[in-house]
Simulated scan of single mutants.
Amino acid sequence: MGTSYHVTVVADGVDADGLKAQIDALLLRINQQMSTYDSDSELMQFNRSEQGKPFELSPELAFVLSESQRINLLTQGAFDVTVGPLVNRWGFGPEEERVIPAAEELATILENVGAKWLSISDDGRQAIRRRPIFVDLSAIAKGFGVDQVAELLRDEGYLNYLVEIGGELRVKGHNALGLPWRIAIERPNLAPGSVQAAIALLNRSVATSGSYRNFRDVDGERYSHTINPVTGFPVAHNLVSVTVVTDTCAEADAFATGFSVMGPEASLAYAESNNMAIFMLTEVDGRVVERWSSAFNQYLDD
């Protein structure tokens, strides 16, 4: 997944080496299913599959693709796993671009971007590419990996743990002090690791998406790495990070990305309408301003 993971288990007599071996094997399997770094992964085989021809899916990939399509609809297209070609063309992929794409070029790329070109069978066992789309699950697969590790720990009988992959995490029970797990929300400034706020969680998942570290300056203009899959352009709003708290980390991961595209006003309106807990940092006149939904109040650690 191109990142690190961390697991904390609060229990007596933990076989750390044995548990690590189980977790490594699980994450390796997920990587072989969903990685775009591995040309032989199941996902990359799907990305090379014949257009219009059903492709048999593993249960795990089927779930993540179905969940991606569900959240795509809920965010009105803001979360879209086919946005990769646009991200690459704006210079945030493996090849760095220094020329801003013309409108005609973006229009051509957009012809093969869109969740509507990805079909999943009613039984969820097959997927079809209706256009030569390229599916990239980097905005949901880490969260799914967190969920899978958490469920492994649950199945092993552990009651108190924290699982984190690349900053996305899920907790259950209490920490070593018998208290709710305390999670820091990073402050978007020039001092990485500084804390903007702390939240207290029990049996929840949390993911953060931010634009404050990944951007490009071209000809005096700053472009965010967050690309709107509907317009093809980098977002231009003042939302610098959004943290989402939900039951599953896959959902939190995907919604955090979708909200980063939607911007602060639309995200807050959605969160309030759907009783979703989100915490946003926006930039106003050079200052960082905190905003959060009503459902987030319960997590603020005073």
Rank of each mutant, 00 (worst) to 15 (best):
T36G: 04
Y37H: 06
Y37S: 05
Y37G: 00
D40Y: 00
E42F: 05
L43G: 01
M44H: 09
M44E: 15
M44F: 03
Q45W: 02
F46A: 03
N47D: 13
N47R: 07
R48F: 11
E50G: 04
G52P: 07
G52T: 13
G52V: 14
K53E: 15
P54S: 11
P54I: 07
L57T: 10
L57R: 09
S58M: 06
L61M: 13
A62Y: 02
A62C: 08
V64E: 06
L65A: 03
L65Y: 10
S66E: 05
S66N: 08
E67T: 02
E67Y: 13
E67A: 13
E67I: 01
S68R: 12
S68Y: 11
N72S: 10
L73E: 09
L74F: 04
T75V: 07
Q76P: 02
Q76M: 12
G77N: 12
A78L: 07
A78Y: 09
F79R: 00
D80A: 08
T82C: 14
T82L: 08
G84S: 12
G84H: 14
G84F: 09
G84Y: 13
P85L: 02
P85M: 03
V87Y: 02
V87P: 01
R89V: 00
R89F: 07
W90P: 06
F92M: 03
E95G: 00
E96K: 13
R98H: 15
I100C: 01
I100P: 01
P101Y: 08
P101Q: 00
A102T: 14
A102L: 04
E104Y: 01
T108R: 14
L110K: 15
N112G: 01
V113D: 03
V113G: 00
V113F: 01
A115F: 11
K116V: 10
K116T: 14
L118M: 12
L118I: 09
S119M: 06
S119A: 14
S119E: 12
S119P: 00
S119R: 14
I120E: 11
R125K: 15
Q126W: 08
I133G: 11
I133V: 15
F134E: 12
F134H: 06
V135P: 02
D136Q: 11
L137Y: 10
L137D: 06
S138V: 15
A141M: 11
K142D: 05
K142M: 04
G143H: 06
F144S: 02
F144Q: 09
G145K: 06
G145R: 04
G145F: 02
V149L: 08
V149M: 03
E151H: 06
L152T: 10
R154K: 07
G157L: 07
G157M: 08
G157H: 07
L159N: 04
L159F: 01
Y161M: 08
Y161P: 05
Y161K: 04
L162H: 07
L162T: 02
V163M: 10
I165H: 02
G166W: 06
E168F: 03
L169Q: 09
R170D: 06
K172M: 08
H174Q: 11
H174L: 14
N175V: 05
N175S: 12
A176Q: 15
L177E: 15
G178S: 08
